[in-house]
Amino acid sequence: MGVLLYYPTVNPPTEVVHQALLYWDGIASVVPRDPRLYEALVGPELRRLEERELYRPLAFTDESLDVLDRYGPSPHADQNWSVLTGELRRIAARPDPPVPTSPPEAVLFTSKITYPLKQLLLELGLATNLVPWSFGAQLSVSKEVQSLVVGVLARELAATTDSALFPYTDSEDAYRNSLRPASPTRCLAWEMELGRLLPVPAPDTPTEDVLAFREKYADERRRLMRALHRMLGDLRRDYEHPADVFAQLRLELSEAVEDYRAARRSSRMAWAHRSVTVSVALAAAAGGALLLPDLGWLLGTIGGYALNVATREIRPLARARDDHDFSYLHRVQSGLA
């Protein structure tokens, strides 16, 4: 089912960790490549999950950063670098650019980024060196700059590893930054809200309880996610006929949702519904009335859950590199179901 790649910080919120454990194969985050910084920054829960092969720390190596400086580790790295530097210059040219503060609003570890990028941030006045530092060389930056830079790094890592990684964030700015164009070509996407189909345990639920549920109801979890991912893939390929896609998968989705609901009832845990937005890049250029955002197709109800598909159009979207290139936004501001 793939792994959630959380950004922009190293340690995801507990509810994001629980989301990953229930509906994906695990969680990853972008960490500094210095082992000492890793030991200092990564929390104990992530370390326990790493021992169980459920957490994967990701970092650029010195060699890959050198390649990125010159050519980029992926065919799109030069485009990403161009977009990133262009956005940073635009931010710096604003009448009210985000000025680094002390104490810092956000930090960037220099061992996460390339030397040319560090120099550019300093030259544009978007970063200042933090001296002294607690965990290695750091830059003071705004949250906007942090989310933009780490978001690009996260997507670059997702494109260059051998695993299916789904970039995922609880930062609105970081999510919107991921929808910036990586090339002059305009690419369309549908944005869908799937949160009510993917409930998570209520706050303060111990992670051990979540792991126990994950193992006991593995079949129900996988069946639900297979159905959802199949729907997203079919919508990406057959964007002109979303109602047909839904009709074909309605029974499979309905049964998967009902089985998972029964598993939740058996668990005796309290559950919360939090917003999860998925942006699906369309596989080909498209146009015409079907892409007008005000059409707002309501394709039906699955086991009591309203599923709104194609209710919002995004222009432009960073060009998808692989079929699994979805961006997830986890919003925490939701009450208990």
Rank of each mutant, 00 (worst) to 15 (best):
V99W: 05
V99H: 12
P100S: 10
T101S: 15
P103V: 07
P104L: 09
E105S: 11
A106R: 06
A106I: 02
V107W: 01
V107M: 09
F109H: 07
K112F: 04
K112P: 01
T114W: 03
Y115E: 13
L117G: 00
L117D: 00
L117V: 03
L117S: 00
K118D: 03
K118T: 14
Q119I: 08
L120W: 03
L121N: 01
E123K: 14
L124C: 04
T128Y: 07
N129I: 12
V131L: 12
V131R: 09
W133H: 15
F135W: 10
F135R: 11
A137H: 12
A137Y: 12
Q138E: 15
L139R: 03
S140F: 11
S140P: 09
K143H: 12
V145E: 04
V145M: 11
S147H: 14
L148T: 04
G151Y: 07
G151A: 11
L153P: 01
E156I: 05
E156C: 04
L157H: 05
A158V: 03
A158Q: 02
T160H: 04
T161F: 02
D162T: 15
A164L: 11
F166L: 09
T169C: 03
S171R: 10
E172K: 13
Y175H: 10
R176F: 14
S178P: 02
R180F: 13
A182G: 14
A182L: 14
S183R: 10
